Simulated assay, not measured.
Amino acid sequence: MADQASDGQEKTEDPTQKRLEKSKEDGQVASSKELFVLTTLLVGFLLYLGLTPFFSSILQEWAALLRFSGEDGLPDEIFRNLGSSFSFIFWKSVIFAMPLFIITVFTQMMMSGSINWSVSALAFKASRIDPLSGLKRMFSMKALVEMLKAIFKVICLIGAAVLVFESQFEKLLTAQSTHLFGGVSRLSEVFLLLIIVFLLVLAIIAMFDVVWQQYQHNQEQKMTLQEVKDESKETEGSPELKAKIRRLQMTAGKRAKERRAAMDKVPTSTAIITNPTHFAVALKYEVGTPGAPEILAMGRGHQAHEIIRIGTESGVTVFRNELLARALFFAGNIGEEIPSPLYTAVASVLAFIYQLDKKEQVEEPDVDLPEDMLFNEDGKPL
């Protein structure tokens, strides 16, 4: 049966990448004790084999620290040799400790895929000293599996040792009939064989334990369907918000496309109202036709410069009026007639341009706009 979450839902979904990364930050990674035992024992065995030729010199160096001549005073010599003994033990221990430390880190890398230093795992948690939590861990399914695994490992190792001693029984019995070094040599051979057999047994146990630990870790990190949905909302946003953003993007894209297409109509416009360069609105009106002037194109910034450039190259009259250009830009729409509150203002401007095109001497009109048609550069009412 799948694990139950606190809200009663079953944890049936595989953990997401974010969940796995969060578990690593909390120090929750798959780890096999049996694999650590195997690798450290293997490295220790290889160190033993590699350092065997140096054992004689190491023993002689150690024995020299236990000889006292008393020439320089026995107490001084004892203290001097004692300090040398500590140094001797320390550096010889480093020779063994460093490879074991390296293989321990490498073993964890093989399990989790990377080196993970978790500060949060060192933080104090009340559950660690809670008696009830401790009892739950002691009598949990995980604890039962660990106990059965330990019993099985002991049985396997004892059985392997019995088989080794049975196969080498005659060699051990005849060891006492030979000389000292011959007997020690036979005992060393049996010892090496025993270690090799132990390593093989531990390798088999570690292989199954790694698979089990990976499976158990994956089961512990499984998520409910609701947790997956909540995480998706946190990382990517809610579906409603994403749909709204898509609608806004589509609307903005549609408007931008319309404005780019409207640029082709600028040469046919009657006049261009500017502010003087921040905004530009191209108007089309034919005298005698019904309806109000139509907005062919409009833009701000770079697009306004393009409208003015195209209109100037095409001989379209450019009329500068800051407030009118803003009013047309913020209140009007491309392809539609100008807003009705701007009829009078635009009519006076077009009449001025019409007379100007006929080479008549006319004064620039005073353009009056309704109060609700007055905007600043951000489109806010003045």
Rank of each mutant, 00 (worst) to 15 (best):
M1V: 13
M1T: 09
D3E: 06
A5W: 06
A5C: 13
D14R: 13
Q17A: 12
K22E: 15
K22C: 05
E25C: 00
D26K: 10
Q28W: 04
V29G: 01
A30F: 09
F36I: 15
V37C: 03
V37R: 04
L38M: 10
L38T: 11
L41N: 13
G44V: 00
G44H: 00
G50E: 07
G50W: 09
F55C: 12
S56H: 09
I58L: 10
I58E: 01
L59Y: 12
W62Q: 02
L65I: 07
L66T: 07
G70P: 06
L74P: 02
R80A: 11
G83S: 12
S87G: 12
F88G: 02
K92R: 11
I95R: 00
A97Y: 14
M98W: 10
M98N: 08
I102Y: 00
T104S: 15
T104Q: 04
T107K: 02
L122R: 04
A123F: 10
A123K: 02
A123H: 05
L135M: 15
L135S: 14
L144F: 11
M147A: 04
I151Q: 00
I158Y: 00
G159A: 08
A161E: 01
A161L: 14
E166L: 03
S167M: 09
F169L: 11
L172N: 02
L172F: 08
L173F: 14
A175R: 00
S177F: 15
L180N: 12
S188W: 03
E189V: 06
E189Y: 01
V190I: 06
F198K: 00
L200A: 15
L202N: 00
F208Q: 05
F208H: 02
Q214C: 10
Q216P: 00
K233M: 13
S238I: 04
K242D: 05
A243R: 15
I245C: 03
Q249W: 09
A252Q: 14
G253F: 05
D264A: 15
T274L: 03
T274W: 01
N275A: 12
N275Y: 10
P276L: 05
H278V: 00
A280M: 02
V281L: 01
A282E: 07
A282N: 08
G288M: 05
P290S: 11
E294Y: 03
I295G: 07
I295D: 08
I295Y: 05
A297N: 09
E306Y: 02
E306P: 05
I307A: 11
I308L: 08
G311A: 13
S314Q: 08
G315W: 13
F319M: 09
R320W: 06
R326M: 02
I338Y: 05
I338M: 01
P339S: 11
S340A: 14
T344C: 03
V349D: 05
A351F: 13
F352P: 01
Q355L: 14
Q361K: 15
V362Y: 12
E364I: 11
P365Q: 15
D366E: 14
M373F: 07
K380Q: 11
K380R: 03
